[in-house]
Structures are given as C-alpha cells and as structure tokens.
Design a protein around this nucleic acid. Structure first.
Lengths: 337, 337
DNA sequence: CTGAAAGCGCTTACAG
DNA sequence: CTGAAAGCGCTTACAG
C-alpha cells in the first residue's frame, strides 16, 4: 500500500545551487513579491536545471494548511452525481484546490472508512453526499469534525453544517401542475419505492398539487415499483387495467418514464399524443429519447457549484450564518406532454 | 487557497497520555505486531480519549512514501469515463489507495496543470487518459516523470509506459461482420469526424471487414458528421437520398445511432425491421432505447480495472516487462439488428 | 518490547 | 532583501 520515491530534489539543493538561502528560495516558490527580479530569475533557473518539483505535502505540513478537499458521493455511474461532480470541480478548480474523491456505493461502512481516510489526509474541507441510512454514530462523528464541511443532496438530521439540496415536493408539484394545466383530472403516479424518502417527498408534492386543484388522490392510480425501467413497464401495465384509467402519468423518475412509455407503445398508445407523460431527473437521454421526455430538472451541476462555494467560504473563514440552500427544480417541457 | 487547522492531537501527546514512548505509539498505529496486547490497548484507549487522528501526510513525508494515486480523465460527464473511474476505484479501493481526481475537459493546458499538481502532491502513481492532442512537450515531460504511471484509453506515441486500450478497428470489424452475416451487402458507415483517430480506426475496421467479404467500400455510403445525435440525423437523411441506399447502417457511436434511428422513423422506416443498425459504445441507454440498440461494448470498467492493476504492480515494484493491454470489444446483440 | 535523537522537505519567526 | 535555527507530525535506525 505504499510506494517510496527516490531522491527528490529539495528546495535546499536548489538554494545551494543558486547560491541563496533556503528561505529566499521558499519565498520564491510561493511567489512572494519582495524578492528582487534578479535573484528570482537565478533561482528559477536552478529549479529548472535540477528538475525541482515543489513538495506541497511538506509545505502543507509545515504551514498547517491544506489545499485539498474531499468529496464523498454515493455513485459515480449515476448521471446525477457525475453532473454534481462537474459542478464541484468547476468551482473548486478556479480557486486552486485539489480534489480527493471517494465513492460509498451507499454503504455506511464505506462512508465511515472514507471519512477517516479524508481526515487522515488532512483535507482542508469536505463535501459529503451521505448514504441513505447514515447511522447515529456517523452523525455524532460528523458533528465532532472541525474541518469545514458541507452536506449535499441528502440532509442529515442533527448535523450542524451547511446544506445544499433540492425541493423534491416542489418538483413533483410543478410536474403535476403542468399536467393539470393541460386539462387532466386523472393523473397517475407511477414507480419508485414507497418507503424511500425520495418517493415520500414526490408523493407529498403530488398530493398537494391535486388538492390545490380540488382533486383527491385516487389510490388506484398510485402504483409503486422497482426504480427501474422494468418497474415502470410493470406499473403502467397494471394501471392500464384500471376500469377508469388515467389520462396522464407523472413518473417517479426518467428511467421509470422510459419503461412506462415502452409499455404504452406495446399497448398501441402513443406517449405525448394519447397519453401525457412527465418524468423526473432530466437525465441526458431524456432529451434524445423518442419521444423527447418532458421532465423535472434538479440541476445537479448547480448543486455541486453551490456546495463548493459554501465550502470555499468556510475554508476562507468568511463569516456568515450557517446556510441551507434549497434549489427549486424546473420543468423542462418536451414532447411527451 | 489555504486552510489552516487548529491544534491537532499528535502521536506524541497520545504517547505521553498513555505513558509510552512515541516510537511505541507509532508502531501501534501501523499495526506492528511486536507490541504487547496490554500496551496496545492502553494506547488505543488514549487515542480514543484524546480524539487522535492519524496524520498520513506527515507519515508519508517521513517515510518517503505515498498512498494516493492520481487519475486524470478528460470528461466526467461522459459515461465511458465514469464507468472507467468505477473500474479504477474498485481495484484501488481494495488495496487501500486514495484517489486524487482531475478532469482536463480535453484541454492541454489543464492537463499540464493537473500533471504538475499531482506531482507536487507526491502521488504514488498516476493513471492518465491523455487529451486528444497532447503536445510534444507533454510527451517529453511524461517520460521524465519517475512516478509509476499508466496510460489509458488513448496511447501517446513515444511515451514509455504501460498502456491499456481498446482495439477500435476490431470493434468496427465485428460490427460490420454482424451485418454481413445477416446478408447485407450495402452497409453504410454514418457519423463521426473523419479527422479523429477514433473515426479513422473505425473506418479501417469497416474497410477490412468488407474487403474480407470481397466487397469494396462505396464512398457514397460513408458520411461523416458531428458526433452528436443531430449529426446522426443529418447523416442518415443524406444517405437515404442515395439512389441506391444502404440496407444496413454501422454507426460511429450510439449517440449517432439514436439520431439515425430517429431519422429513419421520420421517413417511416422501422429500425431493426426495415433497416439493420449497429451502434458503438454500449452506453447505458442503448439497452433501454426503443428499439434496444445492437452495439459494440468496449468495457470501460474493465479498462479502468486493468489500468489500476498495472499501476499497482508498478507501485509495488513487481518486476515485469512494460505492458500494453488491448482489450477486444464485444458485440451486444439487441433488437436494432 | 521501549526510549532518545535525527530527519522527511518545507515554512516561520527572528536577526541582520 | 537574506541567513541560521527551529519545528510541522510523523518514522527510522540504533541502543537498551
């Protein structure tokens, strides 16, 4: 697990070679302006000749600082998180931080381990997208960490820290409002696991949008399923057996929506024409699907950017209250409704 | 750009608290077995009480070693790379390395900068997916780096290092063979930028498969385009104007294939029935598209895994020849042909 | 099995 | 503007 390095050229050697003191050389690598142009050039030349590479690790150790930030996400293969990562990177690159990345695959054990690793690596800050069932232990532990930290995507009750997330109920609300606006009265909610917080929040928005329109939830139009395309397919087949079937469908996710549309086509029903569909997530394919899917975007890239900004403020000790940023999702209208 | 940390508990303090010497404490954190169970427990208890966090940075500095590896990719949002990353992570997590991640967005300048950053951070090893037009400078520089390194996905002429990549011509060959096997004689090659190495390699495979079958390339069936869905749409529309149109289409990528299929449907031609289609990449959507797309998979996850393994061998100084692993792509048959 | 001392490559005061 | 010395938090020989 270790790899040793052979003789690295040190700042001292550079200083000696250039005929200056180590302190002078140190000031030069740190771009301190109070060094004469002449000596600076001389030293730079020596560095080049000797093939000197600055040792940030040693520098950080001595100066008790860090220029790395740790990012812990649950799944890289999920488009949402890769977009999130891009947002974080964009913001962080600008200010010169280096990213230490960890993936938990939604395992508490991995998350605990990564937390330790990051702390042991003296990260200057941490952005954590918690696993779905973080333990009470983890929560206590997070509160003990005195490194700047921001939670993203999933909030952890009891953890005192900045948070950036999305208003899922609002997303569901605007999706259903859109369908309501098209004159639909029987709108199904298809797919997703009823126990998950994400489902519960969508359900809340769905219920609220209907109730505002003076409509009641018809439980026979709410069918849960695995959060997959197959799940969507099964759910739509089931709802179509309803003696009084829906005229529009709000899907738990885009993936579900793809399955739903497949099921509709199998039954000779054309999505976007015979049946209005809204998805959730705005995965990149939603746009190129056939038909292009109307859906809710939660702007993962922006979440990443905001999280990075909050972290940056903490790391630079910019004084402010603890923040909680909840982004509003947006409806992206395409051809499926 | 820096963040200072307040009083960290040190090993020395732990040792003092536990009433042992620092060396003993050091041996304990490194799980050295020649410490008595009794003192180990005592020290562990002190560590817990004081809230000690091991400082890997300091340890690495002193022992002249590193437990981090740098990974430089060109684009996180590209599924290929996120899958690649998963492969790398999987292999590396097992052996306890921590990942430093950088994204170049295909910019030489960013790549150069990241290379510096990683070296300055004393990474123990480096996996590099080079940008498409690395300069001669970069190549020389890479040859000067004495840190373990493996190149992945794109080979760099003149760089002496392990390499893991894919046999693109072979991928094109099996795609075209598949179509040939279904009795097609007029097979189009649609989409992609003619100047790119990826296109040239696909073209080579296409040409070879046809020539083996005793067929010549009909240039009017080879239409390039932007590597997007729109590009595929334009290309197929163009090829359909051919007085002697193709009966099957090999697409530069899955994205192109989606555009092609869209174009076909616009013309009332059903992909998989009236026209056989093969894509390239096997992006996750290929499977759930309508119709599910027959395509070529290049197993990005496996490439990542192999790259990590090669790097690991170098880092552990396992003696062997320089390696060049070229993975064979595979045909994934679904409904589009 | 344990202890005292030196050193990894930097930066930090502090004198000059 | 430059130099000599101490120290960041560890590990590494080397004695005991």
């Amino acid at each position: 697990m270790k790899q040793s390095k052979k003789g690295r050229v040190t700042l001292q050697q550079v200083a000696k070679h250039a005929g200056v003191s180590t302190s002078t050389a140190s000031l030069i690598v740190r771009n301190n302006p109070r060094i004469s142009e002449a000596t600076r050039k001389k030293v730079l030349k020596s560095m080049h000749e000797l093939g000197y590479v600055y040792d940030r690790i040693a520098a950080n150790l001595r100066s008790q600082s860090s220029d790395t930030v740790g990012i812990i996400i649950t799944d890289i293969s999920n488009t949402f998180f890769s977009e999130f990562l891009i947002g974080v990177h964009d913001a962080l690159d600008e200010v010169g931080y280096t990213v230490l990345l960890g993936t938990t695959f939604d395992s508490v054990a991995k998350q605990d381990h990564l937390l330790s690793t990051m702390m042991e690596h003296r990260v200057g800050g941490l952005i954590l997208c918690p696993v779905s069932e973080s333990s009470q232990d983890t929560i206590e532990r997070l509160n003990e960490i005195d490194t700047p930290m921001v939670l993203a995507v999933r909030e952890l009750p009891g953890v005192k820290s900045d948070y950036v997330g999305i208003d899922y109920p609002e997303g569901a609300r605007i999706a259903v409002d859109h369908l309501l606006g098209k004159g639909h009265k029987r709108i199904a909610l298809l797919g997703g696991i009823k126990e998950s917080s994400t489902w519960i929040e969508r359900m809340a928005g769905y219920r609220e949008a209907l109730s505002r329109a003076g409509l009641e939830v018809d439980e026979s139009l709410v069918i849960d399923s695995a959060p997959t395309r197959e799940g969507g397919l099964e759910a739509v087949l089931k709802v179509l057996e309803n003696p009084n079937p829906p005229t529009a469908i709000f899907c738990f996710s885009d993936l579900i929506a793809f399955g739903v549309m497949q099921g509709l086509m199998m039954k000779g029903i054309t999505p976007g024409k015979d049946m209005d569909i809204v998805g959730f997530d705005n995965v990149p394919v939603a746009e190129i699907y056939h038909p292009p899917l109307t859906t809710i975007s939660s702007f993962p890239r922006r979440i990443g950017k905001e999280a990075a900004n909050l972290l940056y403020q903490q790391m630079e000790k910019i004084e402010r209250e603890q923040q909680r940023i909840i982004l509003n999702p947006e409806l992206i209208i395409r051809e499926s409704s």
